[in-house]
C-alpha cells in the first residue's frame, strides 16, 4: 500500500475513531481501526513492513492526541511485527486465519500498551486493563477483520499481477 494512501486511511480512521465509533461502542468499548489496518497490512506484507506501518500508524495517532508521543507507536509496531511474522508462517488467503491473527496481534499490541503505561507511571488495575479493555477491544477489532481483509487482499493481488 503506498504510504500517502496509508496516511490518508489513517487520518480517516482517526476521525471515525473520535466521532462515529462512539455509536457502535459495545459496553463502552470501541474497535481499534488503526490497529486493524496496521495488522492486516503487516500480515500481508511481512514483519519489517508491518513494524514500519505500525510505527507510522501509531505515531500519527500519538501526534493527533498530542500527549505520550510514542505510546501507540511502539504498541502498534509490536502488533504489526507480530502480524508480519504470522503472515510468513500461515496461509494468507483464509479470512478466519486473518481474523485470528488480528485478535492475537491486537492483544499483544494492547498488552505492550498496558506495560508502557506502567513505564509512564500510570497504574491501571489488571482486571480493568485486560478484561474490561484489552480483551474486548481485541475481540471487537478482530470481528471487523473479515469485512476489510478481502478488499486489502484483493488490492495486493491486483498489484502483484500488475508488477
Amino acid at each position: 500500500m503506498p504510504l500517502p494512501f496509508f496516511l490518508i486511511l489513517l487520518v480517516a480512521a482517526l476521525l471515525l475513531q473520535t466521532s462515529v465509533l462512539e455509536v457502535v461502542a459495545v459496553a463502552g468499548v470501541k474497535p481499534d481501526l488503526i490497529m486493524l489496518v496496521v495488522v492486516l497490512n503487516g500480515f500481508l506484507l511481512g514483519p519489517r513492513e508491518g513494524a514500519f506501518l505500525g510505527y507510522i500508524g501509531g505515531i500519527v495517532e500519538d501526534l493527533f492526541l498530542g500527549e505520550y508521543i510514542g505510546l501507540n507507536a511502539i504498541s502498534k509496531l509490536a502488533a504489526g511485527y507480530l502480524a508480519g511474522v504470522a503472515g510468513e508462517r500461515l496461509y494468507k488467503e483464509n479470512i478466519m486465519v486473518a481474523t485470528g491473527v488480528t485478535f492475537f496481534s491486537a492483544s499483544a499490541g494492547l498488552l505492550v500498551n498496558y506495560l508502557l503505561l506502567f513505564y509512564l507511571g500510570l497504574h491501571v488495575s489488571p482486571y480493568y486493563a485486560l478484561l474490561r479493555m484489552a480483551l474486548p477491544t481485541a475481540i471487537y477489532t478482530s470481528l471487523l477483520a473479515p469485512f476489510i481483509f478481502g478488499r486489502i487482499f484483493r488490492y495486493f493481488q491486483v498489484r502483484s499481477r500488475d508488477f
Partner: peptide, 10 residues
C-alpha cells in the same frame, strides 16, 4: 520513542 513518551507526559 520511549524518551519522547516521557517528555510528552501531559
Amino acid at each position: 520513542t520511549l524518551a519522547a513518551m516521557r517528555v510528552t507526559i501531559p
